[in-house]
Write a protein that binds this DNA or RNA. Structure first.
Lengths: 204, 204
DNA sequence: TGTCAACTGTACTCGCAGTACAGTAGGGAA
DNA sequence: TTCCCTACTGTACTGCGAGTACAGTTGACA
């Protein structure tokens, strides 16, 4: 039983690293089983097909990501009880985290899946959708809390503003991948942070 | 000679539509030759392999995109000679254009390529990189022109701000694809437009 | 009339996903 | 102690799509 759990997550570990490095389609099962030191039969014992692997990877990734955001913004809130300043601190922490990640943030997984969606079944696509919707809800809530204290200088759609966090991260990661640089995503986050400062900071 | 050009661009047309719809890897050569009404041999006569097809698609796409941006912002500038207001008009036009595109903006091509880059050779990746770099230069120039007239309220890195246009578009398209909605990218552009208003508009 | 570009058509190889089992090692329940 | 079940291993197969090789065809133009 324990061996099962170990093997399964070992497969997921190897697969995740490979997929983040070179994409889902470019990662062969052959390579995964070699990395996880398991037989091909063993792989298919755990995962019906590559789709099932994708679903499991996404599920695990979304869970990790949620915990990460929970921690990060809770820590920021501890440092400053004001919702705007907590958000600004949180974004700074997020930018730093993105910069430190050598292989790029796992956020890639979402974009990678979105751009290869015909390769996946409806379950995988729905998971992807729910993840983005849950981030929208998370950030929208935080922005509403800020707006209750600081009147926005310009009218903004709160759902869209919530999406903008995901969008800026995903977009930054696309740039980073295409440019083969490593600071673009964190720079984009910092620009978004400046946006929030301008949008919510009281006039003087 | 004329037949050659026709067939080649017919292949590119069919391939581009298929790739935008379902991704590069999910598009088979079989399917392209059926759509373009050509034989498999004929396909390989024009393109050495799928890599050559990708390179040709990217080259053509980048050219189209450049002309499109040239036209769009030239038109905006005609409507208002002030660089800030011209930019705001241009972004509005861009947002409208994105909303009207039924299958999503071809910007996808860049992100799609970025996320499957191990499938491609160095030439394709370099093309992708140059495209983003040229957009950085274009928008950076426009922002510097604005900054010469309107002092930015907050200090910003002009390269990063230039990249933010591409990033917001690409990120918006990722959201749009994953959420299976159709207005996300244009909403994100409009939010970015508000950012510029706040950043450059004179204090009062 | 001959040449060449632009194809068609067929027949292969190869890598990878997925199927189908048959067999085995080891831990727990009876 | 035996049985059974989970978690595998190993082998052998099918099928698909990319890419190769090449022989033959067609139509424009010199």
């Amino acid at each position: 039983m324990n061996a099962k759990v170990d093997t399964r997550s070992r497969i997921l570990d190897v697969a995740e690293a490979a997929v983040l490095d070179k994409g889902f389609e470019a990662t062969s099962i052959e390579e995964i089983v070699a990395g996880a030191e398991i037989s091909r039969g063993g792989f298919f014992y755990h995962f019906k097909d590559k789709n099932a692997l994708a679903r499991a990877m996404l599920e695990r990734y979304i869970e990790t990501e949620d915990v990460l955001y929970d921690d990060l913004f809770a820590r920021a809130r501890e440092l400053n009880d004001d919702p705007l300043h907590a958000m600004l601190i949180g974004l700074k922490l997020l930018a730093e985290m993105l910069e430190e990640m050598p292989k790029g943030h796992p956020g890639c997984v979402i974009a990678a899946t979105a751009y290869q969606d015909r390769l996946f079944d409806a379950g995988v696509r729905e998971l992807n959708r729910q993840a983005i919707l849950s981030w929208r809800k998370r950030f929208r809530g935080m922005f509403e809390e800020i707006a209750a204290v600081y009147e926005p200088r310009e009218p903004v759609n709160m759902d869209a503003l919530g999406d903008m966090v995901s969008g800026v991260v995903e977009g930054g990661l696309v740039l980073q991948r295409a440019l083969r640089e490593h600071k673009n995503a964190s720079e984009q986050i910092m620009l978004f942070r400046t946006y929030l400062k301008l949008l919510f900071a009281p006039q003087h």
